[in-house]
Nucleic acid binder design. Structure first.
Lengths: 170, 170
DNA sequence: CAAAGATTGTCAGTATGCTGTCAATCTCAA
DNA sequence: TTGAGATTGACAGCATACTGACAATCTTTG
């Protein structure tokens, strides 16, 4: 009794594989974002960081990395670039000498307000080829999938857990 | 008559945005791939390149970049690494001194055969949290979306067009 | 054939993304 | 209180990803 034959090695299998499709969509999404937002010189990641700092003023880098599902190491350089553009500032935490707290500057808050419509356009364009019902279905499935796979990638903390300290004393 | 109010600036909006979900899923997908394939020391991109060279022996770097939807610049270093591992070899094209043709070596073909089951496991794990019907729906929508957005990102050629030269001359 | 234009592989430069490590600092238990 | 362990930000190192530029080469056109 022969065991089942090995799967064929073809590109067609790759093109239909989840891994390929996710990589390709990410590629397309970044491309559309950069196109719509090119007037602002902000990357998707930098935008995400600004939004998170706006939502949680005084957050530290480690917690920020958890909130935007971003590696702690890489985030350092992202913060540097945002600081160089004068969009954020870092203040030492009084009660803990290790921590530096992150705040939006006035220009940071301003560019965030201005870029939002462009980001909305970008997000809409990514799904534009689909019918409205299909868009809802896709987004619903993706939210589920990301949520249920949440512990897989090395994000150290869930967003909620990461922000416990902001509740007390804020 | 006031125009519609500006959208609220919150992380919730980010978490439900296509751009965020695509980035997150790509992150998770790579993480799962690396986990399942860690015995082979191959990245998803290197795997894709090997598959493509296997499917199209004698392909050149530019066409390869089109086939796997990969930037021409980045592909240079990927090829270097695969060559350093002795998985591929490059031969100058006799009729065009600019071009170097890519071939799998014996070890390259061997590792490809061996890694396939691990890749299959990885691909399955990415969708595991969903029900079978939902997986099919999601993959169907993603194939559509990637296909219809194909010209957006800077991939220079469609896969089919990229391979015209391989038809003539066998 | 010669000049204009396109293609190929490569490089420099920037920005993610990851692992692993480290010193400084904080926390907690003995 | 002191020492073990955890946390924080920083760094080194590797691997994508992208833009733009370049010399070498090929193709097309006059």
């Amino acid at each position: 009794m022969p065991s089942k034959p090995p799967p064929p090695i073809t590109m067609d299998a790759v093109y239909a594989a989840p891994g390929y499709l996710f990589r390709r969509m990410q590629q397309i999404a970044v491309s559309i974002f950069m196109e719509e937002c090119k007037a602002f010189d902000l990357t998707p990641v930098q935008y995400g960081a600004l939004i998170a700092i706006h939502t949680h003023p005084g957050i530290d880098a480690t917690r920020l990395s958890a909130v935007i599902a971003f590696d702690r190491s890489t985030l350092g350089s992202v913060i540097e670039r945002l600081q160089a553009k004068d969009y954020i500032e870092r203040k030492p935490a009084p009660e803990d000498k290790r921590i530096k707290l992150l705040y939006l500057t006035k220009p940071g808050a301003a560019i965030l307000r201005e870029i939002i419509p462009a980001v909305e356009r970008a997000q809409a364009r990514m799904l534009e080829p689909l019918k409205p019902t299909e868009r809802k279905t896709l987004m619903g499935l993706l939210v589920q999938l990301v949520d249920l796979n949440n512990e897989v990638s090395r994000v150290p903390l869930r967003a909620e857990d990461a922000l416990e300290h902001l509740g007390k004393g804020g």
